[in-house]
Design a protein around this nucleic acid. Structure first.
Length: 810
RNA sequence: GCUGGUGUGGCGAAAUGGCAGACGCACGGGACUCAAAAUCCCGCGAGGGCAACUUCAUGUGGGUUCGACUCCCACCACCAGCACCA
C-alpha cells in the first residue's frame, strides 16, 4: 500500500472530520477539562500570514496531544473585529467597515480551516456582532454600577491635520501615524475604568500564575509600585495645603522650594496678581507640547514662579512655589518638594532659577559632589543630624505624623484606563445625557445600543456617531424627556478583556455567560499570544476578571493560569515582516506546494517556538523527505508477514520508550523543534530495524502504532490518513497517547566517559546501572587512564551513574 | 539613564552543573547508474599528527567547583520594556 503524503488528503480529512464531528466540544464530558486559548486575531484584509500559522498551528498540535492524553480540550477561535484599520480603510475607500470586516472574516475562516485545527466552529465569537457587543456594553454598565467607570476631563493626543483624536499607539513618536503631523495635546471629557483600584491585587496575583518572568516584570514595572511619604505644606495666606509625594523624605530638611504640575488645580488659587500673566502663558505653552517633548529628559528645565510661598512643615521656613512641566499631574500628588542638593532635576532647575541649594545628606565614605542622590548620613538637619537615611525616613515621618503633616504612603505609576474613543467602529458606550437627570446609564434591558450603519466617515475630531442624528437623539431612560447619546465608542481592548468567557457560552442571549459553565472551565490552562500585549490586553483582562469576581460573576482571581509567548518569525532579512519592506512570506504558497502538514512540521522544526527568528525555507525540502521516510516505515510494516515470530529486539524497545518520553516532555514545553528531532531519530531506528532479516510482528506493530500517534499532533491530516490505511475506522485522535516505561528508556549497555582532572581520557561501554565501586574500578584500570595517573596520587574519584567517572590525581 | 533578555560551527539550532555542537540545512567523498536525478552509506568546529591520539574552543576577563554553555562578579556587543515617576 502507498502511504505517501499528498496534500490532497488535507481536504479529504477536513471534510471527514467535519462530517464525523470529530472536534465537537462536549461541555458535559466527565474528562478533566483543558482550556487552551490562542489570542484571537484582527480580521485583516490580506490572507492568513505566517504569523497566524505560527500562532495557531503549533499550539493546536499541543492541544491534540492533550486531547490524546485524555483531556476534554476546549480550543476556540474567533475574531477581535472592531478597531481602527477597518475604519481607516472606510475613509480611504468608502467601503463600510461592517462590510469589509465581514468579508475579511469570511476569508480568514476559510484559511483557518486549512490549518486543520481542532476548532469547534459553533463556539466562534466575533466582537463586532450585536450578540457580543451587547455584553461588552453590559460589562461597562456593571463597572459603572460598581463605581469603576467614571468620566473626567483628560489630555488626549490630537492630530491637527486629520482633525481627529488618536489612540496612544497611533501617536507614537509624537507623530500622527497617517500624515506624520506633530501630535498636540487636547483636553476632552473622557470615560475611564478605575484599574488603579486593583493595582495591588494585579501585583499580588502575578505571584500565583505560571507566566514568563519577563512578562510579569513588564507588568510589575508598568504598575510601578513605589513606597514613600506624603508631606503637606501650608501655603502662606491660604487655607489649602500643598501635598507632595516623596521617596526621599530623609531629605526633607533640604527642601528649598516646591513645584506644582502646571495642570494642578491649586495653581489658579495661589498665583499672585503679578504672576498671573506669566503663569497662564506658561500653561498655554505646555498644553501644546506633545507627551514626547514634555517628558524628554534632554530638554532644559522650564517653569515660572507663582508668587506664592509654602511653609516648611518642620522648620516653618518660607519657600517659593513654582510650576514646571517636569512635574507630572498624573503621578503621585502632582506636586513635589524640591531638594536640589539631592535630586538631579531639582538641581538643574535650581541652578537655572538661582534657587538655594542646601546639602543635608553626606556620604559615609566618599567625597560628595552635588547633586548627591545616594543615601547617606544626615547633616544640617537639626535634631535628625547623624541619622542614616533609612533611620531618618522613619524619624521624620513619625514627627510629621505627630503634627498631622504627613505619613507613609504607596503610589503606583499605573493610570486609569482611558476607554473612550472618538471612533465609529467600536461598541457604543451605553450612556445617555439628559439635561435633567445628567449621566444616565442605558438600562440592561435596552441593550445593545446598536451601532448605526449609515454614518459619514469624514474625520472631524469628533466621533462619526456625533453627526448621526438617528443615533444621537433619544429619550432619557429615567424621565423620558429628550436626551442625547454618548457618541464615543469603547476601546477595543474592552472587547478583548472578557472574550475568553464568552467563548464558553457564545449563544447565551440572557447573560454574557453562564457561571456554571465558566466555573467549570475557567481559568484558561494555557494561553498563547504575543509579548506585545504584556502591559495592555493581559493587564486589562486580569483587571476585568477581578472586577467580575468582586461582583460575583466569576469565581477565580486570575483568568490565565499559564502563559506562553510565541516568538516572531522575521523576514529573511531579519527585519519584521511588512508589506512596505517587501519581505513577507506567503504561507499560502508553501501550503499549496507542500501541504498543510509539511508546512506545520517545518515551522515546528525550523524555529524555537518562543524565540522565532528570520525566515528561511532552506530546510523545507528536508521535511518533505522526512515525510517520505515516514511513508516508507508504514509501507514496510504493512508488508510484514503476521506470523513472523522472532525475538524482541532490545534496541528498538529502548528507542521507542526513550522517544515517547522526550516527545511527551518537549511537546508539553512547546519545544516542537526537539520533539520533531527525536521523531526523526526514531524514524531512522525503525527503518534500521525493518532492514533486518528477522522482525517480530507484534513488536513492530506496537512500535509503528506508537510512532503514528506521536507524529499525529504535528501532522494531523497525514497520520489520520495513515491510521485509516492501517485499517482503523475511528480517528487516531481518539487514541490514547503512548506511555513509556522508565526502566525501558535505557539500554542494557551505556557508554560512559572517564576523565582525569576533568579532561576526557577514555570512553568505554559498561552495563547500565553499574555500581559506583565497579565504575571506579573499571576506570582506574583503563589503559589510557593509567597513562595520566601513573606516578600521581589519586585524591578522589567522582562517579556519576551511567554518565562518567572523574579521577582527581595530583 | 534604569530594568531585563540574548551572545555556541558556514547556517537553523541542541545540551536537570557531568562526553559541547543532538536533529537538520549546506558542503565534501563513496555506492547504485551509460549518465543524471532520486535514494543509500561515510565524513564534516579549528589546529597538529601516517595513526593511536592530542591541543584549543560556547562574546571578553576573572571567580566558585573534582567538573562550568549552564552558577557568581566585571566588561563588550546586540535586542526589548520603561523613562523628568519625585
Amino acid at each position: 500500500m502507498n502511504f505517501n503524503y499528498d496534500k490532497s488528503i488535507d481536504d479529504k480529512w477536513r471534510a471527514l472530520w467535519e462530517q464525523r464531528q470529530t472536534y465537537k466540544f462536549d461541555k458535559n464530558s466527565s474528562k478533566p477539562k483543558y482550556y487552551l486559548l490562542e489570542m484571537f486575531s484582527y480580521p485583516s484584509g490580506s490572507k492568513l500570514h505566517l504569523g497566524h500559522w505560527w500562532n495557531y498551528s503549533l499550539p493546536d498540535s499541543f492541544g491534540r496531544m492533550k486531547r490524546m492524553q485524555g483531556y476534554n480540550v476546549f480550543q476556540p477561535v474567533g475574531f477581535d473585529a472592531f478597531g481602527l484599520p477597518a475604519e481607516n480603510y472606510a475613509i480611504k475607500t468608502g467601503i463600510h467597515p461592517k462590510d469589509s470586516t465581514a468579508q475579511n472574516i469570511k476569508t480568514m475562516e476559510e484559511q483557518l480551516r486549512q490549518l486543520g485545527a481542532t476548532y469547534d466552529w459553533d463556539y466562534e465569537v466575533k466582537t463586532n456582532e450585536e450578540e457580543y457587543y451587547k455584553w461588552t456594553q453590559w460589562v461597562f454598565l456593571k463597572l459603572y454600577e460598581k463605581g469603576l467607570a467614571y468620566r473626567k476631563d483628560a489630555p488626549v493626543n490630537y492630530c491637527p491635520h486629520c482633525q481627529t483624536v488618536l489612540a496612544n499607539e497611533q501617536a507614537s513618536g509624537g507623530e500622527c501615524e497617517r500624515c506624520h503631523s506633530k501630535v498636540e495635546h487636547k483636553h476632552l471629557t473622557q470615560w475611564f475604568f478605575k484599574i488603579t483600584d486593583y493595582a495591588e491585587r494585579l501585583l499580588e496575583g502575578l505571584k500565583t500564575i505560571d507566566w514568563p518572568e519577563k512578562t510579569k516584570r513588564i507588568q510589575t514595572n508598568w504598575i510601578g509600585k513605589n513606597t514613600g511619604a506624603k508631606v503637606r505644606f501650608n501655603i502662606l495666606g491660604h487655607d489649602e495645603k500643598i501635598e507632595v509625594f516623596t521617596t526621599r523624605v530623609d531629605t526633607l530638611m533640604g527642601v528649598t522650594y516646591v513645584v506644582l504640575a502646571p495642570e494642578n488645580s491649586l495653581v489658579d488659587k495661589i498665583t499672585t496678581q503679578e504672576q498671573k500673566d506669566a503663569v497662564s502663558s506658561y500653561r498655554e505653552k505646555v498644553l501644546h507640547l506633545s507627551e514626547i517633548d514634555r517628558t524628554s529628559t534632554v530638554r532644559e528645565k522650564t517653569g515660572v514662579f507663582t508668587g506664592a510661598y509654602a511653609i516648611h512643615p518642620l522648620t516653618g521656613e518660607k519657600v517659593p512655589v513654582y510650576i514646571s512641566d517636569y512635574v507630572l499631574e498624573s503621578y503621585g500628588t502632582g506636586a513635589v518638594m524640591a531638594v536640589p542638593a539631592h535630586d538631579e532635576r531639582d538641581y538643574e532647575f535650581a541652578k537655572k532659577f538661582n534657587l538655594e541649594i542646601k546639602m543635608v545628606i553626606n556620604s559615609k565614605d566618599k567625597e560628595v559632589t552635588l547633586p548627591f542622590t545616594e543615601s547617606g548620613i544626615l547633616v544640617n538637619s537639626g535634631e535628625f543630624n547623624g541619622l542614616s537615611s533609612s533611620d531618618a525616613k522613619k524619624a521624620i515621618v513619625k514627627k510629621l505624623e505627630s503634627i498631622g503633616m504627613g505619613e507613609m504612603t504607596t503610589t503606583y505609576r499605573l493610570r486609569d484606563w482611558l476607554i473612550s474613543r472618538q471612533r465609529y467602529w467600536g461598541a457604543p458606550i451605553p450612556v445617555v445625557y439628559c439635561d435633567k437627570c445628567g449621566i444616565v446609564p442605558v438600562p440592561e434591558s435596552e441593550l445593545p445600543v446598536k451601532l448605526p450603519y449609515n454614518v459619514d466617515f469624514k474625520p472631524t475630531g469628533k466621533s462619526p456617531l456625533y453627526y448621526c442624528d438617528e443615533f444621537v437623539n433619544t429619550t432619557c431612560p429615567k424621565c423620558h424627556k429628550k436626551a442625547r447619546r454618548e457618541t464615543d465608542t469603547l476601546d477595543t481592548f474592552v472587547c478583548s478583556s472578557w472574550y475568553y468567557l464568552r467563548y464558553l457560552d457564545p449563544h447565551n442571549s440572557k447573560m454574557p455567560f453562564d457561571k456554571k459553565i465558566t466555573d467549570k472551565f475557567m481559568p484558561v490552562d494555557k494561553y498563547v499570544g504575543g509579548v506585545e500585549h504584556a502591559a495592555m490586553h493581559l493587564l486589562y483582562a486580569r483587571f476585568i476578571y477581578k472586577a467580575l469576581k468582586d461582583m460575583g460573576y466569576v469565581s477565580g482571581e486570575e483568568p490565565f493560569k499559564s502563559l506562553i509567548h510565541q516568538g516572531t518569525i522575521l523576514g529573511a532579512d531579519g527585519q519584521k515582516m511588512s508589506k512596505s519592506l517587501g519581505n513577507t512570506v506567503s504561507a499560502d504558497e508553501y501550503v499549496a506546494k507542500f501541504g498543510s502538514d509539511v508546512f506545520r512540521t517545518y515551522l515546528g522544526f525550523g524555529f524555537s517556538y518562543t524565540e522565532g527568528g528570520p525566515w528561511s525555507d532552506d530546510g523545507i525540502l528536508a521535511i518533505n523527505k522526512f515525510f517520505q521516510k515516514i511513508a516508507k516505515v508504514f509501507e514496510n510494516f504493512s508488508n510484514l508477514e503476521k506470523n513472523s515470530n522472532d525475538e524482541i529486539e532490545e534496541d528498538l524497545e529502548v528507542w521507542l520508550h526513550k522517544t515517547i518520553k522526550s516527545v511527551t516532555q518537549d511537546m508539553e514545553n512547546f519545544q516542537f523543534n526537539t520533539s520533531i528531532a527525536r521523531l526523526m531519530e526514531l524514524t531512522t531506528q525503525i527503518s534500521k530495524y525493518q532492514a533486518k532479516p528477522k522482525r517480530n510482528y507484534e513488536q513492530e506493530k506496537h512500535a509503528v502504532y506508537c510512532y503514528a500517534k506521536l507524529l499525529a499532533p504535528i501532522m494531523p491530516h497525514y497520520m489520520e490518513d495513515v491510521w485509516q490505511k492501517l485499517g482503523h475506522e475511528t480517528s487516531i485522535f481518539d487514541e490514547k497517547w503512548p506511555t513509556f516505561d522508565e526502566a525501558k528508556t535505557m539500554a542494557k549497555s551505556v557508554e560512559i566517559a572517564i576523565q582525569v582532572n576533568g579532561q576526557i581520557r577514555a570512553r568505554i561501554n559498561i552495563p547500565a546501572d553499574t555500581s559506583d565501586e565497579d565504575m571506579k574500578k573499571i576506570a582506574l584500570e583503563n589503559e589510557n587512564v593509567t597513562k595520566y595517573t601513573s606516578g600521581k596520587q589519586i585524591k578522589k574519584v567522582i562517579c556519576i551513574k551511567n554518565r562518567l567517572v572523574n579521577i582527581v590525581a595530583v
